[in-house]
Design a protein around this nucleic acid. Structure first.
Lengths: 225, 225
DNA sequence: TCGTGCCTTTACCAAATGGTAAAATTTGCA
DNA sequence: TGCAAATTTTACCATTTGGTAAAGGCACGA
């Protein structure tokens, strides 16, 4: 049981409606704005994660949010802005476990903690995982800059950390880049391919425990010197 | 270098235009039918794998195939039939490596061979991998029966084989179901998340070799007694 | 109480989309 | 070669989709 937030922080920098000429920032959003933007983004997450960008419709989002379509467009400039907003918010949450990986901690513990946090996130936020997966699957048309600017430096940094651990003999040598890929792949698999996993794994409740145990063993045996 | 076919068998049971009243089967398809159906399915694979079912359009498929839209509909009853045909064909190819897993072979060799074949397929048929991934991601609306009828028995059977190997002490004990999941996840990751992998892994050509080496080590250390 | 600014609805629209009808063309073969 | 069957094109259509205009409702401070 890790300290995962009860809910994703489903709103970030609010809007950017057009900064006033003199640079005055927008007024703080009203309570109603907060509520409706959140309703919209939550409905949009559901729809986008299930149908992909092009397959999602504003009508579906509107219905899911319990608002009219023009009302949706009162809060967002268009379909694309909603999608991008979701992706921006997601990025932060998604990267957090990797950010947390501590160079001064015990190497194996740190890695296993990372695995566990990713697995917990897959179980807690499957829609977010699928939204991300769908975007990458389609070639990351709206996220390439984020990957380049946000993910890549972090990825390189943490690869260096892991590499240093291996150099110091604290972990068995293995390519840190592929190690991270395999952690992402195995943990997110339970969210992204849930439809398949559910068919093949009849037991529902204990499945999380089984996955956790298995992945712990997998990465422990790989890395323990 | 495994024996992967140079191309997917991109056509299966041809059509089922409506069996004649007396049960006579349809005549064998003309050369032109073969060519055009293949053109259409190939274009459709590209479009569906990139945009998902709802995001794909017949116009895109038609353009990709170099045919007019009504001409497409001369060969297929509609968008859905094209999609289903692709999925049907894919299933066979996709399951093949698992079918091949030999209960009488050397356990570790068999598993590693399976890993390598799956990895090769991810590199050779990334579009097929993404088509499959997209379908599952969206909840397998058009493939649930296939999963249930085709995949599940095979999955259970091979889990039993692997379990028996472990019982006999030929492999370290681990949950065979999660083992298979992790093989699928790690290998398909290179196709499904190629957009991300490419950004993070600057070296293109040798990446396949790196993945292969890493995954070999990962599963060897997990399973070698 | 009134009005002002925020919010919501009604009524649209142009483009895109899956699909059809039927005429025109090409193909294969007797 | 001639002609029936197979194939392709042209011209449509109804629905859906993202988006807009503008009128109405609502809340709340003066």
């Amino acid at each position: 049981m890790l300290t995962t937030p009860g809910r994703l922080p489903l709103f970030a920098a609010i809007p950017e409606k057009e900064a006033a000429l003199d640079g005055t920032t927008d007024k703080k959003p009203s309570r109603i704005q907060m509520r409706n933007r959140r309703l919209i983004l939550d409905a949009a997450l559901e729809v986008f994660s299930q149908h992909g960008y092009r397959g999602a419709t504003l009508d579906q989002i509107a219905e899911g949010a319990g608002l009219s379509k023009p009302n949706i467009l009162y809060y967002f400039e268009g379909k694309e802005e909603i999608h991008i907003t979701l992706l921006n918010q997601l990025m932060e949450t998604w990267l957090d476990p990797l950010v947390t990986l501590d160079p001064d901690g015990d190497p194996l513990t740190e890695i296993l903690n990372y695995v566990h946090r990713k697995l917990d996130m897959a179980h807690e936020f499957p829609r977010e995982s699928r939204l991300f997966a769908g975007e990458i699957l389609q070639g990351a048309p709206r996220m390439a800059p984020h990957l380049q600017a946000g993910l890549q430096p972090l990825f390189d940094e943490k690869c260096a950390v892991i590499g240093a651990w291996m150099d110091a003999g604290h972990l068995t040598r293995a390519d840190p880049r592929h190690l991270i890929f395999s952690i992402w792949a195995t943990t997110q698999h339970y969210a992204d391919f849930a439809a398949q996993v559910q068919v093949l794994l009849r037991e529902d409740p204990a499945s999380q425990a089984g996955a956790r145990e298995y992945l712990t063993a997998l990465f422990t045996r790989l890395l323990k010197p």
